[in-house]
Nucleic acid binder design. Sequence first.
DNA 1: CGGCGCCTTGAACCAAGTCAAGCTCTGTGG
DNA 2: CCACAGAGCTTGACTTGGTTCAAGGCGCCG
Lengths: 224, 224
Amino acid sequence: MQTALYRSRQAPNSAQAVAARQCNSLFDSVSLLGVAMPFAKGEEICGENESADHVYKVLSGAVRTYKILNDGRRQIGAFYLPGDVFGMEAGGFHSFSAEAIVDSNVLMVRRSALLAASQRDTGVMNKLLACTALELERARNHALLLVKTAQERVASFLLEMAGRLPGDAVELPMCRQDIADYLGLTIETVSRTLTQLGNAQAIELPTSRRIILRNRSALAELNT
Amino acid sequence: MQTALYRSRQAPNSAQAVAARQCNSLFDSVSLLGVAMPFAKGEEICGENESADHVYKVLSGAVRTYKILNDGRRQIGAFYLPGDVFGMEAGGFHSFSAEAIVDSNVLMVRRSALLAASQRDTGVMNKLLACTALELERARNHALLLVKTAQERVASFLLEMAGRLPGDAVELPMCRQDIADYLGLTIETVSRTLTQLGNAQAIELPTSRRIILRNRSALAELNT
DNA sequence: CGGCGCCTTGAACCAAGTCAAGCTCTGTGG
DNA sequence: CCACAGAGCTTGACTTGGTTCAAGGCGCCG
């Protein structure tokens, strides 16, 4: 809910904002079927190729989904923040593993219950569709990220996070390695690039996890 | 990891294969509402940021969707072959442009008619969801592609195409530049990599558009 | 046969990766 | 309250995979 409300500051009626709100409200109607579960920092929520019995909603904290590639590298698929729904895979198996980035609370809903509800209630089905469409949008944006230069990737990441977290000062829940694995860069390159953006007055780094966007348009220019 | 459609040859009842079939049959029930339109090679089917009035299904030929980045580079989002549905964006606007790669026939269905049908008929809605989920799966695979080495990207591309086209000898509808823009590489790197794979006996290149997979497992090893 | 796309190949260059220190927090125990 | 350890982050020097620039080859169609 937080996410949708924040996004609404910039483009309250954009298609994506609508999709995000619909999506975030997905569990409202079926939340009775769900159980809130606490996960400690680093704890696994579900594993790749496990049968996808549940769909999840972040209540507090932050979650990363990832895959380990054959050369041992880890690729992060997405970050999920409070209000976000994840685990809505196409098939019966999760295509990514999910872990809590920090201590988090996650609402777990049985997939079968959700699917059953969606067959009875068109509203739920519509939300399910909106939810999947939003994920699709994010996956496509992520793919677009990965063909850009290091500066552009980092700038896009910062703008994305700033749009999903409240305020101009972003308190990142994830470490540099997580950012690197999300952006397809090394930790060193992420670090150097943040330093460059700092030198260019585009951002300010009071601490390594806290980032203040000083010049959004400069970042946006790196974005497209 | 293989694409949904490739997998379907080997695992005809995998969840993804089911999704693919559901998706391909999306227009069966509403096809009366659609119009088949011919598009010449290179012709635009719809433009980025245009209002998304239609959803499309490839009847014959091949289609590419793409975006132009701020530095002028073109990024191809996906290739669509006969049976594939595209243009099912989240919002009311297409997020990618679409063009015919070769002379093609495309079934156009009014988005509003499809959405209306989906509200009346749960079956249509389910197919819509399957369709979007399949696109999501593809977008995620595409993102995973883009963090790999040139060899791995080209190998993945060949396996994907081999799985979506009939036979072991793949007749590619797209030129090297299209492949390069899909894989986030240059045309020179794609060319060199194909030559390497040829030297390594993994593939054979009777002509530049015709590619025979000689050693799938070697390609698959580059894949993961 | 000649012209034009399209593709391949070679050589020089560069952005990002790798390897190797060193720095900065933060929490812990003396 | 300080010393210390360890994790996480930054910085520097060197290497490299892929790009860029440039030339040449192939095949198709008039």
